[in-house]
Write a protein that binds this DNA or RNA. Structure first.
Lengths: 341, 341
DNA sequence: CTGAAAGCGCTTACAG
DNA sequence: CTGAAAGCGCTTACAG
């Protein structure tokens, strides 16, 4: 007299089979209907949705990933979270991806190529649906691994010219040139450039500054200040007096990131150095503090939030197998002239 | 004459079966050996590991999750990434979890209880191995859902007294009392407290200030400044002149977060208000800029990095089913007296 | 447009 | 200590 055993799942959650049973269709039809396939009869589709709602059904991501050989995860690799730039980027990207049904796995690579490779490799083991990378396309091994798995990928914060690569960003070179030209127009002649961390994008900015200075016939190697240490307020504060006392004799300093410029401003205040009287100061990125420093910092506003959003949207298209109109999106930048230049 | 079909996997990756075949054992023994089970013969275990190495085998997380009904993901929910506090927390926690073989899914809840519930719910659908939450234990529905799935959880940044809850942090109340007492010892009498965002931990700090002021017989409601807006440098800059002109007539201002205090310092500089001469300024958290402001900011240093690390380690123990010696870890705080008090 | 079969790559629970 | 069987909950590919 024992009743036939009901499907007692360990999970206690409704499964696709439960939904199919209630809707009186096969599991396949239920699966198709729930994924929004157009090849399912309207009425049946409705019935399936209704059943799913009634049972509080939610598809099991692991089962889906195993069967389809692709997860709903997107890996996003950024060099740092200490720089607010990447936080903004991330928040926007994650918001978009979440709306599209993807989960975001964030990896911080500390500007280290090896760490980036390793993390990407770890992520590829999990078969991500897509990848968002910051900047350069990474090592050749990385690209090959991604191609082998056919993982869609979008690069952020630069425009990459290589065919086949998708990127969303702006020209770091032109942005740096624009600020340098602004300083030149203000009558500055000995404009120093401070490059730290020495990652690719910083070197592109350095290049932009160099081009502008060369065109003006004012380039002088002594005006290039390089330091491999990570960017920070403290570092900027330390660099200011050294640079001012150096053979460079600058009348303006263009820092590759706002936090350095902010630190320099604090140091100037403390040392009684007049900004912009004695020396003009410029930054890059327009971080939150920059409009509040004394004096207020002139800088280049970068569209990182928009970059995150557009990159995520582009990636979603790629992951859905849709055709992409523009694989390269240039979002530009904005010169923000305040009180320090 | 056709050869028997070799197992041609869509993935192209080695599977457990491949490893087992090469090591001449069953899949089960291979599985056990690779997971480090002690119930496997030493020699066999070696052989399996060797085979796995030779094939470059990496277990498929989706298959593992489906079979075991538990993923290797840990969800970490923080209220904001704009506050460097949570960035530090996250980086440390993620580093620990990664080393232990877990992947971190970060969720930003914007100090919104509903958003927190919703995100946690979404994460629970993916059957996380564990959850790291910031602060209060969340809604009752949340706790019930987690208990139903038996998901280990650790709360960060406060010490929770509720039995059965694990937490790593420090006493927000005592930290605020310590700073208030410091200001009292410096001879300040009309110490204002600025609370913004009005999240739980901010209110605990407000409470700590209130207790200290009451004990000193100096509490005055007019000294409480509340604003539900998010904490920011700009907000602090805006509040300073208003508070100074108010009926509160403060001779010190204790801001609930460093960025507010930093903004206030910028405003003071611009308005020619002497700090600490006319008014002392104190912050909370010791963010990177605080040691560089003019004058340098006195604040409370919070052990967020350590909190992230210890919370992750505690969670790993729970996820492994190990017994936990101390479910509540108090990491304390440190008063950092600089130039503004 | 719909469905029965097979399989994704592991682990759990049960025997030996 | 080891293994054969069954199953986790989906989707792919193939028929009809």
């Amino acid at each position: 007299m024992s009743a036939p055993a009901r499907s007692r799942r360990a999970s206690g959650r409704a499964t696709l089979a439960d939904v199919a049973r209630l809707a009186e269709v096969s599991a396949m039809t239920a699966s198709r209907a729930l994924r929004g396939a157009t090849t399912v009869d309207q009425a049946l589709s409705e019935k399936v949705r209704e059943a799913a709602r009634k049972l509080g059904y939610a598809p099991d991501p692991a089962a889906r990933a195993l069967a389809s050989q692709r997860s709903s995860h997107v890996a996003v690799l950024v060099p740092s979270l200490t720089n607010a730039l990447f936080v903004d980027l991330l928040e926007e990207a994650q918001g978009c991806l979440r709306q599209a049904g993807y989960q975001t796995l964030i990896g911080v690579t500390h500007y280290d190529a090896d760490e980036e490779s390793q993390q990407l490799q770890e992520h590829l083991l999990h078969r991500p649906a897509g990848v968002l990378l910051t900047g350069t396309p990474g090592s050749r091994a990385m690209r090959e691994a991604m191609e082998a798995q056919a993982v869609p990928c979008v690069h952020m914060m630069e425009i990459l010219e290589q065919p086949g690569l998708c990127s969303v960003g702006f020209s770091q070179v032109e942005a740096a040139m624009a600020m340098t030209n602004h300083l030149l127009e203000r009558g500055r002649r000995r404009i120093a450039f401070v490059a730290v961390q020495l990652d690719d994008r910083t070197l592109q900015r350095l290049q932009g500054w160099r081009l502008a200075m060369q065109r003006a016939g004012l380039h002088d190697e002594r005006l290039e200040w390089r330091d491999p240490a990570p960017s920070s307020i403290g570092l900027g504060a330390a660099i200011l007096p050294q640079l001012l006392d150096s053979a460079a004799r600058p009348d303006a300093i263009f820092f590759c990131n706002d936090d350095l410029a902010q630190g320099a401003l604090m140091a100037a205040l403390r040392l009684g150095i007049d900004v912009p009287g004695r020396v003009a100061i410029a930054g890059f990125n327009d971080l939150p503090l920059s409009e509040h420093t004394v004096p207020r910092l002139s800088t280049v506003r970068t569209p990182r939030g928009q970059v995150g959003r557009e990159a995520a949207m582009l990636l979603v298209q790629l992951m859905r197998g849709e055709s992409v109109a523009r694989p390269r999106i240039d979002l530009g930048f904005e010169l923000v002239v305040r009180e320090t230049t």
